[in-house]
């Protein structure tokens, strides 16, 4: 099995009623977009992939990431990154500490600091390491959240309505940034959204979920 994220014969049901069924594989650098009205189970599907599904859901099927079966792996060993519509930066840490939290455990303190500064510079936030995340603008927070996630070196990227809180001008900018970084790192991307523009910009296959 080659690189990429595969959801094989996944069926999620609740209270005996099937909600979502999907079987797709997403190659490196490709985007699969899931669309559908709210309550149809889009976020539930993502929770299944991150390993944080609530116990009341019954799931069958398998998740393969780069050929390995991660269906039963604990969330922190899956190497699946996720971005939500809120930036969810840890409010008790500075911008730099947030990035250090995400950064894989290698290198000494100086090297780690340098990597964090490089990451900030890459998204035009040089010198922001000591800032309180609450003082950043929406676009800046989104960029920090993206870099925090990328520094953890995930092997796949999940997007849960990631741009819906941003205003129109920022939205395109942040979206392009996210997709270009994912592409340059050859990450398979699974995005759920109810925004047609996001889906078009993603450029990949679009699956529409319907209420069952």
């Amino acid at each position: 099995m080659d690189k990429g994220l595969e959801l094989r014969d996944v069926v999620i049901s609740k209270g005996g009623k099937p909600m979502v069924s999907l079987s797709r594989s997403i190659a490196s650098g490709e985007v699969l977009t899931i669309m559908g009205p709210s309550g149809v189970g889009k976020s539930t599907l993502l929770a299944f992939v991150t390993g944080t599904l609530a116990p009341e859901f019954i799931v069958s099927g398998t998740i393969f990431l780069d050929g390995a079966d991660i269906t039963d792996a604990p969330p922190h060993r899956r190497r699946v990154g996720i971005l939500f519509q809120d930036d969810l930066l840890f409010p008790h840490m500075s911008v730099g500490q947030n990035l250090l939290f995400g950064l894989r455990e290698d290198g000494n303190a100086t090297q780690r600091k340098a990597m964090v500064n490089d990451a900030l510079e890459e998204v035009g936030l040089k010198g922001y390491a000591d800032r309180d995340p609450a003082t950043l603008s929406g676009g800046q927070k989104a960029r920090v959240a993206l870099m925090r996630m990328l520094l953890s070196e995930p092997c796949a990227l999940l997007l849960d309505e990631p741009f819906s809180r941003l205003d129109a001008a920022l939205r395109a900018q942040v979206r392009d940034l996210v997709f270009s970084r994912a592409k340059s790192r050859a990450l398979p991307v699974l995005m759920v959204t109810h925004d047609a523009e996001d889906a078009t910009a993603a450029g990949g296959e679009i699956v529409k979920l319907m209420p069952s």
Binding site: A47, T50, G51, T52, P74, P75, H76, R77, R78, R79, V80, G81, I82, F84, D86, L88, F90, F101, G102, R104, R148, M149, S152, P154, L158
Partner: peptide, 21 residues
């Protein structure tokens, strides 16, 4: 917000690290 826990776990933090940090 449990999504904070999801984010931290997705960044590779173990459950204990999520709790303490």
């Amino acid at each position: 917000d449990a999504r904070m826990g999801t984010i931290a776990a997705a960044l590779g933090a173990s459950p204990d690290r999520v709790l303490w940090q």
